[in-house]
C-alpha cells in the first residue's frame, strides 16, 4: 500500500495520477458499472473499471482543473447499504458515499491541481 494521493479536501496533484479508487467492503454481487469524470462544461470522460468491478482508475490524462466524479453501481442487496468509494491507499481516503437505493449513484467534486 502507498500513501494517499488525495487530500481530505479531495484535491490531487496532476503529477501523481493515475490513482485507483475502489469500493470499500462492498456486499456480494455489487459492482461499479460506470465511473465518469465531468468537466465544467459537462463533458464526460469514462474511467476504466477493473475486471472484477471493484475499482476504477483516474488516468494520468486527466487535466488540471475542477471535475465532478460520478459513480454508478449495480447489483447487491435491495436496498443497498451505504457504499463507500475510497482511494486505494493506506488510510483509505474517502472519495464519495452512495446511499440512494434507486439511483445507486453519487457524485463528488474533485480538484486536480497542476
Amino acid at each position: 500500500m502507498a500513501a494517499c494521493k488525495f487530500t481530505s479536501g479531495l484535491a490531487i496533484k496532476q503529477s501523481v495520477l493515475p490513482v485507483t479508487c475502489k469500493l470499500q467492503n462492498p456486499p456480494a454481487t455489487l459492482t461499479v458499472v460506470l465511473a465518469q469524470f465531468f468537466d465544467v462544461n459537462g463533458t464526460a470522460t469514462t474511467l476504466a473499471v477493473s475486471a472484477d468491478g471493484q475499482s476504477f482508475v483516474i488516468p494520468k490524462t486527466i487535466a488540471s482543473g475542477s471535475w465532478t466524479l460520478e459513480v454508478r453501481v449495480q447489483g447487491g442487496p435491495n436496498p443497498i447499504p451505504a457504499i463507500h468509494v475510497v482511494e486505494d491507499c493506506d488510510a483509505s481516503q474517502l472519495i464519495l458515499t452512495i446511499t440512494d437505493p434507486i439511483s445507486k449513484m453519487a457524485r463528488a467534486a474533485l480538484a486536480v491541481q497542476s
Binding site: T31, V33, A51, G53, Q54, P77
Partner: peptide, 11 residues
C-alpha cells in the same frame, strides 16, 4: 437485484 451484467466485472 440479481442483474447478471457486471457480475464478472465486465459490464
Amino acid at each position: 437485484s440479481n442483474s447478471s451484467a457486471g457480475q464478472a466485472g465486465t459490464s
